[in-house]
């Protein structure tokens, strides 16, 4: 399954204002891995994620999904493989009802309406939100919105899931459900987050970013336990790791 490998080589990006958000980022993520992307605000995490499905295109270097480099031409194909869950579900849920929203992707990729609806319902069932299918998105709670946003992406059967701050704005119960959901997926997962407890539970591997570069990468327990590294990059050692000794 080498075609689900996500790879960045010397990736750099400069915003129109002149701010260099990424300067020479390289990493390789293999099929089925769950990788956390952590670092302080402004480290370049969101910018990096936007490169993974071609929402932004690199100024230098490249991103490859499997054998395919991400370019303007390949972006539509890449987007079927790489499902992106945006930070604010209100930006992602723009259709009048939950069902129509989840069916939006499949319909755009040419599925017949009946088939698209089946897919949408299946995706909603997968995240436990099928009962909300006729609701308008704004009546949903933050946790429900997040779950539906994930369903919109699942309905396109991607191989790679990219998520930006999936646990932000969630109450503890909503967050717990999200963590269980993320653990149950077999997709390659790349999750940018400040929620280090979530990282401990979901992601065996961590990339630490700061100032547009990757400053460390490795097994989660190792890096998250490195108090020095954590503090230096505006992070902190998760409580769960303080009280239990790593195995």
């Amino acid at each position: 399954m080498s075609h689900h490998i996500v790879e960045a080589r010397d990736l750099s990006f400069v915003y129109p204002g002149g701010h260099e958000a990424l300067s020479g980022v390289s990493f390789r993520i293999t099929h089925g891995e769950a990788v956390a992307l952590i670092g302080p605000n402004g480290a370049g995490k969101s910018t990096l994620l936007l490169h993974l499905n071609g929402s932004l295109l690199p100024a230098r270097g490249e991103v490859r999904i499997g054998d395919l480099p991400v370019t303007r031409q390949t972006a539509p194909r890449i987007r079927r493989t790489v499902g992106m869950v945006f930070q604010d579900p209100d930006d992602q849920l723009f259709m009048p009802t939950v069902l129509e929203d989840v069916a939006f992707g499949p319909l755009n990729y040419g599925l017949a309406p009946a088939e698209a609806e089946d897919r949408a319902v299946a995706a909603l069932e997968r995240v436990g939100m099928a009962r909300l299918r006729q609701q308008p998105p704004y009546t949903l709670s933050a946790g429900e919105k997040r779950a539906v946003a994930i369903a919109t992406v699942l309905a396109m059967s991607p191989d790679v899931l990219v998520m930006d701050e999936p646990s932000s704005n969630l109450d503890p119960r909503g967050r717990r459900r999200l963590i269980e959901l993320l653990k149950s997926f077999e997709h390659t997962r790349i999750i940018a987050t400040h929620d280090l407890e979530l990282v401990v539970e979901v992601c065996p591997r961590v990339l630490v970013m700061d100032g547009g570069v990757i400053v460390a990468q490795g097994p989660a327990h190792e890096l998250l336990n490195n108090e020095d590294l954590m503090l230096r990059h505006g992070l902190e050692r998760p409580h769960s790791l303080r009280h239990h000794h790593p195995h």
């Binding site: 929402s55 723009f94 755009n108 396109m156």
Partner: peptide, 22 residues
């Protein structure tokens, strides 16, 4: 926000047409 919505739409295959269900 409109810009972000547009990215989210593109990410799910938006090509200028709004599809409808049944």
């Amino acid at each position: 926000r409109a810009q972000r919505i547009y990215s989210a739409m593109l990410a799910r295959g938006f090509n200028g047409d709004m599809p409808t269900l049944q």
